[in-house]
Nucleic acid binder design. Structure first.
Lengths: 196, 196
DNA sequence: CCTACCGATCGGTAGG
DNA sequence: CCTACCGATCGGTAGG
């Protein structure tokens, strides 16, 4: 009779969200069916609706949870009393770590957000625009302090974010590259390209 | 009665492929319906099947056409009698130009290939692996000739390909960046990060 | 948490 | 190139 498991730290809903991230990544949001998700969770499809409101709600939660994590990290970095290049270095490494540790969720937020419905679609895009703008500001500071060479800061942000996002390829075919080499070499490459 | 338009350079099938690229990019392959495609083309849904075999065939043609274009370009570059960094520079710029000029098709090949069915799925992934391996070889040459600094060449390829792919974001929100600035600054950033 | 089931929409075919 | 239509599958609800 109990509809939602009480107490416990990891609720059934958390399990559903994890499995949904995996399923949405591998099949895509639209191709993923609630019957497939139910099978992964170990219940019949209609039973899912005791824990969630709808399929689209799962996508919303995944996308906004990831947005919140990246924003929270940037909040911390911005306040740190270090050079601009140290900040950018840490941000690059954080993105890489997120790709490595929360691959499914980051992937879904990166690739399936367009299936969000209004008003969530606009809210999400706005969060991303704000995040990018804050990175641009960080880079502009670094150009002013002569740490970075003079180059279009928006293109720099685009290059950084795109490059780290591409780790999704690496996740599929590891090719003798350890996470540490990946992190150090990619962060080095991207940062060196920005320096004077 | 005529099933396929004769002569003419741009057939109805070409129009369908163009519209399908746009539709698959904006909605995703699975969310895109043949009825929507038919409306964009200006016919009823069943009429599409006089020109095409199936929905999945459209995806196949888009993905393999793009793979062929990138491969053909690399064939040319490899034979050129110039430095490794000049080759890499040209490849980066070619990728950027493709993103700018054939955005829909490149996007679909990048994001929707996973909906291909076997044996096309494996064929496509194999083409991409071969392409990446050839880039790795180019970079290894540049490291041997001391043009590039010593760093994992596979990570370098990953960084390059990921960064140029990210121009899809820029396509959505131009932000006072001209194509020429984008091309020069991004290619500069990526190449500088590789040099000694 | 299940069984039973609904209305909607899908890709594609038949037939002309 | 169209109208008419099919079987399959979808997200989700009713009721217990």
């Amino acid at each position: 009779m109990a509809k939602i498991k009480p107490g416990k730290d990891s609720t059934k809903k958390d399990v559903i969200l994890m499995k949904a991230s995996l399923l949405f990544r591998t099949r895509g949001f639209n191709a993923a069916s609630m019957r497939q998700l139910a099978e992964m969770v170990g219940v019949e499809a209609p039973s899912l609706y005791n824990h969630i409101g709808s399929k689209i709600e799962l996508l919303q939660e995944i996308c906004f949870k990831m947005a919140a994590e990246f924003t929270a990290h940037l909040d911390v970095i911005e306040k740190m009393p270090v050079t601009s290049s140290a900040k950018i270095d840490q941000i690059i490494r954080f993105h890489i770590c997120m790709m490595l540790n929360k691959f499914d969720q980051v992937f879904v937020a990166d690739h399936e957000w367009m299936h969000l419905k209004e008003p969530y679609l606009n809210q999400f895009l706005n969060k991303r625009r704000v995040y990018e703008k804050r990175l641009v500001t960080l880079i502009e500071e670094g150009i002013r302090t002569k740490e970075f060479r003079k180059s279009n800061p928006y293109v720099m942000v685009l290059t950084l974010l795109s490059a780290v996002r591409g780790i999704e390829f690496w996740q599929r075919q590891r090719k003798n590259v350890t996470p540490q080499v990946l992190e150090d070499d990619m962060a080095g490459h991207l940062l060196k390209g920005m320096l004077k």
